[in-house]
């Protein structure tokens, strides 16, 4: 469980990145955190991982206060930053030195992920490409079986086949005790992976709902004429009219398009809030 209570953070007391953020993330879900560049996604994740300290408010992760960086907290939370570091040795050495820190580490699972990602086993980690390094770290993080897994832009540097491998593997490791939180600006990479979405904008959380709620409240489809388009929360011209997001007043079924949802939330924040609060 991750619980934020009136969290305020900024790199100086006068310039706050977010203020009074409150939310609860429950186990058994994969959360997607979206936001524009500079919205504070990475800072929020780092607060949760205990790498940055809040100015005000409280964070609780698995019953621990992250800023204390206690071993019990660290061995049950794995954070993959955007810029990763791997030490200068090969995979087996890396495993032998670091896996003992994680009591639930599953070596066989790790080997399986490495095979699926097609990582050469004997190469030095520092000699690998950025994408390969990222895949090694993702494999390690998933095999560590921590109750909380936080990933900041995990698909950066991954090629197209690896991105779908990533989605497949991540969805396979979700269990009822585990929270997976993924931040990205490449929203397509989260398609059909996340079951909850969080949109951070202008120091506040605009949306924090399950994908089921999103598809219940909003309709993603094509509008044929300009008149219909007036009620769109966000639209883009397409071959057959306008591809748009509208309020789902008629309870129609549609597939959530994360990119359109994000754009709608950024363009019409007040309306979006009203819709979700109704």
């Amino acid at each position: 469980m991750i619980h934020l209570d009136k969290l305020t953070f900024g790199y100086s007391k006068h310039k706050k990145l977010f203020e009074n953020l409150s939310m609860t993330l429950a186990p058994g879900h994969i959360y997607g955190l979206l936001g524009k560049n500079g919205a504070g996604k990475s800072s929020l994740l780092r607060n949760m991982a205990g790498l940055l300290y809040p100015l005000e408010g409280k964070i609780e992760v698995n019953g621990y206060e992250p800023k204390k960086r206690q071993p019990g907290f660290l061995q049950d939370v794995f954070f993959i930053p955007e810029e990763i570091y791997l030490p200068p040795f090969n995979i087996s050495k890396y495993l032998s030195v670091l896996s003992p820190f994680y009591p639930k580490f599953d070596t066989e699972q790790f080997q399986q992920f490495i095979r699926e990602f097609e990582i050469p086993k004997d190469n030095k980690l520092t000699d690998m490409s950025y994408g390969q390094k990222k895949k090694v770290l993702i494999s390690f993080a998933l095999a560590a079986n921590t109750r909380v897994l936080i990933m900041d832009e995990p698909t950066n540097g991954l090629d197209i086949p690896s991105k779908s491998q990533f989605r497949k593997i991540v969805s396979s490791v979700l269990d009822p005790d585990r929270i997976i939180l993924i931040s990205t600006h490449q929203v397509r990479d989260l398609d059909s992976l996340i079951d909850h979405i969080i949109i951070l904008e202008n120091s506040e959380i605009l949306v924090q709902h399950s994908m089921d709620t999103v598809s219940e409240k909003l309709y993603f489809g094509t509008l044929v004429n300009d008149e219909d388009n007036l009620r769109a929360l966000y639209s883009e011209p397409s071959l057959r009219g306008f591809k748009a997001v509208t309020e789902n007043t008629e309870q129609l079924d549609s597939r959530v398009d994360l990119e359109y949802l994000f754009n709608a939330a950024i363009k019409n924040p007040v309306r979006i809030k009203e819709i979700f609060n109704s």
Partner: peptide, 18 residues
Amino acid sequence: TSPSTGIAATLVPGSILE
């Protein structure tokens, strides 16, 4: 000294004292 190595070192599950 650098953010990437610092994050890796900070998140190793050991206490600050250790």
